[in-house]
Design a protein around this nucleic acid. Sequence first.
DNA 1: CCATATTATACTCTGTTTGAGTATATATAT
DNA 2: ATATATATACTCAAACAGAGTATAATATGG
Lengths: 322, 322
Amino acid sequence: MSPADQHAVAIGLSAAIVSVAEEQPGVLTVRHPEDGSDGLPFGPFDPLQHRTLESGLRKWVGEQTYLDLGYVEQLYTFGDRGRHEMKSGEGPRIVSVGYLALTRQSGETKAPDTLWRDWYRYCPWEDWRNEKPAVIAEVIAPALKAFVKAAPDGPTAELRRDRMRLCFGFDGLPWDEEKVLERYELLYEAGLVQESTRDGRANAKQMSPLGTGMLFDHRRILATAIARLRGKMKYRPVVFEVMPPTFTLLELQRTVEAISGIRLHKQNFRRLVEGQGLVEGTGKVSALSRGRPAELFRFRREVLRERPSPGLRLGTRARGPL
Amino acid sequence: MSPADQHAVAIGLSAAIVSVAEEQPGVLTVRHPEDGSDGLPFGPFDPLQHRTLESGLRKWVGEQTYLDLGYVEQLYTFGDRGRHEMKSGEGPRIVSVGYLALTRQSGETKAPDTLWRDWYRYCPWEDWRNEKPAVIAEVIAPALKAFVKAAPDGPTAELRRDRMRLCFGFDGLPWDEEKVLERYELLYEAGLVQESTRDGRANAKQMSPLGTGMLFDHRRILATAIARLRGKMKYRPVVFEVMPPTFTLLELQRTVEAISGIRLHKQNFRRLVEGQGLVEGTGKVSALSRGRPAELFRFRREVLRERPSPGLRLGTRARGPL
DNA sequence: CCATATTATACTCTGTTTGAGTATATATAT
DNA sequence: ATATATATACTCAAACAGAGTATAATATGG
């Protein structure tokens, strides 16, 4: 590598392309030819070809996945040394811009080497829909306690203990479904996810019960994407980007639950969604239910023009003036 | 410029360093030697010297401004062609990562060529503390109406009209103090701010009543910073980063108002702040008031360990499940 | 010293929202 | 027909937001 290359920076664009099917949130993954592990679709940003970062992203996502993205949102730009290389120290420094994209298509992918995966495959501790994931009490809690004990000094230990309590809701603290990134970062620093080993940290297990690893910093980007989507849903009607044109209210609720990873109160959900004017009935009913047929609803696009921030405010940790 | 350089990308780091003094939110600006117009402190990211983007930022901000930043948060990465160059088409493509930083120091700066400026200098339409800014009805409304009329076709005009209504609260729609970036971008696209001319758009006036222009895309970064801070304040106790160690509740309220650009109900503000356990009294009272002396409070750091998202929830556009 | 202005702080009141539950309607399965 | 499953309507209490009134403690001007 020449000296000039050492100063060089390349921009990598990665996308967490999300869709929900069968009550499972899916993320589109690409199988890496050599390594064998999965990653997000990604590609370089070429300043000559692309006017904006987002147009660059749309371009090669289209080529790589044959998908036409609807909603696209920039997440975060990571530039950490050592978290992008396959083996650390090689190649130019990659600055990696992560994106969240939502799409309706799911199920089969026509593009080669791509695969829809349940996103909880990569973070099983995030799915509280049925019960508190057992892995938290069985694996995460003891491992993090050890991480606290291993702290070099008192203040560091205190800090680690606080993060652990707040992230995972120990000691009766509430579970905050939006702290996805904080949780992943804590597990990473504690050496509990596969990526920490690869990046040169100790103590990680190869076949971890803590989800499947991903290439580069892609699991970090996925965590950021989940966190952003869980939050955004509450004040912008983005869920409808992954819904079919018509749907029953229960289908909508199941989708929201799949994304947020928590269960909701059915009657209140209906009250909220209808009260906010987010949907309108079509008069038609859904065929394939067991009990009383449910009415089919559609998204009322007009809300976007009526109110400044229409969203689904669930489980409201309300916001206030300060 | 050699062909290799054309593909080259340089990372620029820019920071909106914010502080509040005398009920005015200040942003630290750097006077550009040639151009004469102000910009934010910025510098290149050197992958050899810096392990992360943020550490790079802290490094040269320290050198350039003699400030030690406390709170730092990444905002957004802009890579648009034509919005960074002084004259378009020259130099390598700059991808610009914007940051928000908060600091207590204000008033005098010791660093040469830096100056604290009231941030409303750059977006006068954002300050609703005393009354609705006159510039909205007098300049913005007619200009945007013309922008709607000038739309090439029907749907474009409709879109423009909706954005205008929602951004600036026309037709009785509420003012959303968080839509700072949306408003700036709308004004930019309509050619109403100085930067649009420089970037090659038509119809802008040089001495605009619509705030002072900034170098590169720095006003866009500032708008993003204001928006982020106004929002973040509501669910994280970040205001205290710009407060002195002790303060009266009215001083705290004035600071929040300065940032959000709107007035708050005094008694309810007190109820909220105390009820949330965000502050604790010191027993001492402030000297310099006219009427009854106010008690001095301090930030209760412990809230960060007690609850997952302690913030100031003002003017609550509440969030919900969906 | 007293009246008045000014600011701080405590308390009340009302409408809305949230979280949780009950009741009823309409379908399928056996 | 009965049980079961689902949809939908309605109720209720607690918490909260927005707005106001009441009282306390100081300074200022006569």
